[in-house]
Structure formats: structure tokens, C-alpha cells
Write a protein that binds this DNA or RNA. Sequence first.
DNA 1: GCAAAAGTGTTATAGATACACCCATGG
DNA 2: CCATGGGTGTATCTATAACACTTTTGC
Lengths: 260, 260
Amino acid sequence: VTVSSGDQAVIDSTDSLDGHGYASVAVTVDLVVLTIRQGRLEVLLIERGSDPFKGQSALPGGFVQSDEDLDDAAAHVLARECGSTLAHQAHFEQLRTYGRPDRDPRLRVVSVAYVAFVPDAPEPRAGSDAASAHFRLVADLLAPQATLAFDHARILGDAVERARAKLEYTSLATSFVTSPFTVADLRRVYETVWGATLEPNNFRRKVQATDGFVIETAAARTGPGRPARLYRPGHAATLHPPLLRPRAGDEMVTDGRALA
Amino acid sequence: VTVSSGDQAVIDSTDSLDGHGYASVAVTVDLVVLTIRQGRLEVLLIERGSDPFKGQSALPGGFVQSDEDLDDAAAHVLARECGSTLAHQAHFEQLRTYGRPDRDPRLRVVSVAYVAFVPDAPEPRAGSDAASAHFRLVADLLAPQATLAFDHARILGDAVERARAKLEYTSLATSFVTSPFTVADLRRVYETVWGATLEPNNFRRKVQATDGFVIETAAARTGPGRPARLYRPGHAATLHPPLLRPRAGDEMVTDGRALA
DNA sequence: GCAAAAGTGTTATAGATACACCCATGG
DNA sequence: CCATGGGTGTATCTATAACACTTTTGC
């Protein structure tokens, strides 16, 4: 198991494996755990306790064991950082794999990134043994001067874009709220992730017209105004027709509550 | 560099790396090279010359070297199988990473899959040193009884779905045709990949209304009927508004020319 | 001229947008 | 009874689907 750094960069996988060496590469999973707290998009970060990037913030992650599926590895990290109860409600999916040779100064690390969407987390972290897991504002971290360890800023950017895109054509938004929710709750998810304001009426119509997005319940939630009807997630995974986000030229909320 | 198959499946990446072992994992890239030949969607396959899966068809791929970016590894495989001239015209992008522990019976292999879209390939392969690279009909390979080595059938399925989806909201279709092309050429790309028939008139209107999709040239191509105006790819990467594919219940071409 | 394929026009329907308006609750 | 937020109605605009029709070539 040694590195053969010869001229030919790619070894034909059809050849006998034993004849050639293959690169010794560590494979990790990194998680972008997104949540919405008080109308703001936040991401779970840990503070690195050792070099490299000691003291800087980083995405939680871990090495993949040799008998472990990638999805399982991601699930384990999620459970470790968020607690198993929250981890079970969360929806997570593979994002992309990052493998630049210099992304970890220690050794060659290929990282399979995952995105997880959790409803408003009760507390920053539940049963974590990591010293310092905490949610941070995504808007601050996407700013140009913000720094994250490794290439985690890029991973975070890709994850946010994935979330924005998937709100359009999937029922992902229901993963950001706890189960009895109002249409306004759902709308605020879209507004927070997209950084845009939506017409409440038209949003309701689209949600109700989209088959299987939400299921009406008998209950209602009381508040400052007229009680709001409560819903639970529907069975549809994809939305027909899609809920397209406002495109260029539309007003963007530019105060502290919006993303960059 | 030894495997520690202990109880804890995930090692905290914040801990010192040297204290823990990390899994010895081989990382490969596998390529799904899609093209359209004679109105049919085809994929580049190689025939495996050695066990496992000896004699079966597989996606071309190769091991990632320790000093090599994943994208570079994919580009090298593409150049090796298609020749560097065709590889330069092609658009390729990362698809997804597959890492089930049992996907390769020899050792733990995590494969980063890529999709490449090449215009109607002049010949099955150009400067390949692999013994038997050839294009095969995707429709045949997606059939239930079709067999591909490893989990390559699943990778192929994901790649085709990616292609279908990206036609909707990106200018990907122009990667399937050579540069002076007609609107009808572009329409046949959509019809082939989607397995649907589209109204020529409405398709033209959408293509021309979508800013930056195609650029009109002065030339025209003569043929069986009225000469068709020729276009070249525009500068837009994404389409506004998107070209949505017909949804459930629409007619699907069910003869041999269409996909499953 | 005729077949074939490119390109134009027109209408009906569906979805999106914007905004006026009504409803139900807490204070 | 009024402020607040939930919910409804409706006119306008735009995108899409369907299809009839005209144009320009090869034979």
C-alpha cells in the first residue's frame, strides 16, 4: 500500500490491482448541519483543538472506517454532534466530494461532504462529546473576511446553494420545521434560506395547490392575530409545480437577517 | 496505515490524527461518458479483462494518485478513453461518490463518479490503450436484466437522471452537439435524453426566448426540406426560464429509440 | 409540383403577481 | 373596538400547449 507517484497519473482500473500500487488516501465525511433559529440560517461548527487550523472553526466530521458506508459515517457524525434524537428527525444527503491534494496539510484527505437539515435545534448540541459545538450565523461565515478551517468555507457555500435550490422543487422545507407547523412557518423557511420576502397569499396558494406538500390537521395555533391552521408534512418528495425563487432584480432583504 | 475496526465507527477529526489509525481506502474515479449517436443515448464502457467481474462491462475509471486533484483524475481518464481532442470539447462534472464497503470484493474502494457529455463521438474511441472501449445503448443497460460490473448500473442510472435534470435548467444540451447546430439538433438532444417528443415550434420559441442559450449565425444547413439556420452555443450557463420536461402522464416514445 | 422540414401566427389554458378585502383572536 | 396576523377573492400578466398555416429547399 504505497504511493506510486510516477508519470502516469491514472492507473487503469481494469488492470490487476496487485500489480500497481494505489494511492493511500484518507477518506472523511464532513457535515454541514443547517438549521433556522429565530429566523436566521445557522450552521453547526466545532472549534478545532489541535493543529492544523487550531482554534479556528470547522465543520464537524470524521474518518470513514473500512467497514462503514459513507452514509452511515455521516449519520454517526450527525448523532455525535446533535444527539441521536435530533439526528433521527433530520434529513441528510450527500453534497459533493472535495479532494484537492493540498486541502489538508497533513496528508491526502478526500472528504465526502453531507448536508443535513434539522428543525430549530432545541439547544446548540445535545449529547456531544466534542468540546465546542455551536451554531453560527451562515451570513457571517459567507462574508469574504470570514475564515473557516480547510476548504470548509467553500463546502458551506455549496451546501447553502444546494439548500436554496432544493427548496424550489422538493418538500425539503418541512425538514426545517417541527411537525405541527403553519403555512407562515413554512414561508419563513423559504424567506430565510432564500433571503427574499414572499407574498403570504400567493405562497399559501402554491403550497396548498402542490399535491402532497402539506397535510391539513384539525388543530390551530393561537397567537397575536387570527389562529393559524396547523399542518404536517405530506408524502410528496418533489413539488409539482415547483416553487421557483425570485430571480435577479427582485428585492433582497439587506439587513442583518439576510444572507450575503 | 492500518484499519482499526473498533466499536466506535467514526473518529473525531479534531483529535490528533497520529493517535488514531485511519481507514486505508482506495479512491477511484469512474466516468459516465454520455453521447448521442444516431438519435440514441449511449455510454462508453470497457470490457473487464481480469477478475472481479472479468468479461463484464464496466465504466472506465482509474485510481486517484496522491498528488492529483479529483477533477484532474477524471480528466485523465476521459483523455485516455476518448482521446484528448474529444476530451477538451466535453463538459464533465462530479456526479456523486459511492462508497459501500462491499462494492469492490477486493478491498475498500470509494469511487467518485463523474459524468461527461460529449458531442456525437466520431469513432468509439480514439487514442485509447484500453483493449475494448465501446459505446453501448443506455436503454439496454438500464433494463432490469442488464448487468454491469460493481455498482455501475446504479451509477449509470444516477448519471442519466442528472443529465435529464440538467437539461431543464442549464445549457448542457449544447455539449451534446458540435458547434454549428440547428434548433432541431438541439431538440433531438432533449427528445433523446428525456425519451419524449416535443413540439418543434414551442421548443424553438423557448430556446430563442431564453437569453444567451444559443447565438444565431449567418449560415444555414441544407437538407431534405427548407434550410435550417445554424447556431452556436451562447454564454449562459443556466436557463431563465427553465425548459421543463413533460411530467407524468405525457406520452413517452416506447419504441427502441427511447429509454426505459 | 410535391414531399419534407423549417419557421410563423393564433388561441386557450394554466400559473404567477399584485393588491384589495374579510376573518378571528388578544388586548 | 382596534391592532395584528391569518386567510380569501380577483384582475392582470406571462408562460405554455396545441395546432393551423406559410416558407424554402430537394427531387
